[in-house]
Design a binder for these strands. Structure first.
Lengths: 238, 238
DNA sequence: CGAAACTTTGAGTCGGATCAAAGTCTGTGG
DNA sequence: CCACAGACTTTGATCCGACTCAAAGTTTCG
């Protein structure tokens, strides 16, 4: 899906373990970007590890002729730019969907901690693996699912992610993406997405008033989303 | 795209640097799997780092109702199962497209080397980042490109990857995937893929005789594939 | 030689894209 | 506070790319 549940690399103020304190110390800056600006550009070199503190952003790639695919949605608490830690330039761009606040990490201190602290390495690598896994979830949707399935999956996923970090409850949330952006995440044309949303509304599966989404019938929505095939239990096969 | 250009973790016999020798020492086993079997199952726990030595395989996910998306194609030299190094279970399955031979790595020794050798860590993380990047390449194709663009891109990509490791030349290669598999990689129906291939053949862009593919008109094929928008040069923008 | 797997072709349908235009919202400046 | 412009959403009408169903060829392999 667009949007992965990256473990936050930045602590709140409660539950400060030594590790979180160490991560906190890497924070060198707090930046703001207005809506609709590049927060990280493809090709940017150097270490640019960042965590969204407020607002929504998304990772995306753009083709020559302007077609754009949103690769993942970044919510408060999500970290991006991990790939810049290993010498590669950023391979995609991060764009703000709302005004955002994000924390930047000191490149040298981060690299040092990465080299010295096994727990930090594991945490980063785990974050990377999670992002990969989330992209795989979304690839199967893009390749195999129809517009309705994808749309339902996106809405459910965003709610779950927001809910998990206390940014939404009661099956309601504020969807901080325009329909153009949603369509680019889903690989659909806006007009078609709009009709799918109308249909879901007409069937009372969701309610929408402006950016406010209400998942009225979670069961029905879940039923729309195809489940992954349960892997065979490893101990039951050779 | 399905298929990433993973740096090989296994050396040939020429150019043995100390690092490659160290990696070589991690190899504990050589296994064979017939065509059409699971080489790595989703949910498999424990460290299962492996390198394809011979044959083709692919990473994939499957939905309840049988729909399958191929996430990446593994060629000789490609390493998979990196994500199993960080405590997570494998989140997708690896399936053999031909009979394959693959090397397995000793889990404990691998973890030890990972903890002790910065160069090894970087190599693995780089491999992971490359896989991610390749998946992003393919996501934009799945979401934004039509059947012809995707098909041309897949064929070109496979040739380039094979050519880079000396497994193909002269714009010819043996495509070791059935059309069903190609279709599952491209997110297309077989019947439609078959027609796209016929059309490319009729236009003399490609030649196919059985599994043997010949990219007859590289320029025309490249022209079909939309280019990524060049990132703004970082030094030219703020 | 026969069965199973795979490829190819035909005909028809449908989901989603495209083109066009009317509404609605948002923010900005007067 | 209002007016206006630009961005965004919604709806209608039409078209085409891709899917579906069906069946005939072809290859592969036991």
């Amino acid at each position: 899906m667009p949007g992965s549940a990256l473990p936050s690399l930045l602590p709140g103020h409660a539950n400060m373990t030594p590790e979180l304190t160490a991560i906190h110390a890497l924070r060198t800056g707090l930046r703001r970007a207005p809506r609709n600006t590049a927060v990280l550009r493809a090709g940017d070199g150097g270490v640019r590890l960042r965590t969204i503190l407020e607002g929504w952003a998304f990772r995306c790639r753009i083709l020559d002729d302007g077609r754009r695919q949103i690769l993942g949605i970044l919510l408060p608490g999500d970290t991006f730019g991990i790939e810049t830690l290993f010498g590669g330039a950023a391979d995609h761009m991060v764009w703000s969907a709302t005004a955002v606040q994000y924390a930047t990490f000191d490149p040298d201190a981060t690299e040092r901690l990465f080299d010295d602290a096994p727990w930090f390495r594991r945490r980063l690598m785990r974050a990377m693996a999670d992002t990969s896994s989330a992209m795989q979830d979304w690839m199967i949707q893009l390749g195999q699912c129809n517009a309705e399935e994808r749309t339902a999956a996106l809405l459910m996923l965003l709610y779950e992610r927001l809910e998990a970090r206390g940014l939404a409850r009661g099956h309601r949330f504020r969807l901080e993406l325009t329909q153009v952006e949603q369509a680019d995440a889903l690989g659909l044309h806006i007009v078609h997405l709009n009709r799918i949303l109308s249909r879901l509304r007409a069937r009372r599966l969701i309610g929408m008033r402006g950016p406010d989404v209400d998942l009225l019938d979670i069961d029905a929505l879940s039923a729309l989303i195809p489940a992954p095939r349960q892997p065979l239990r490893p101990d039951l096969v050779s």
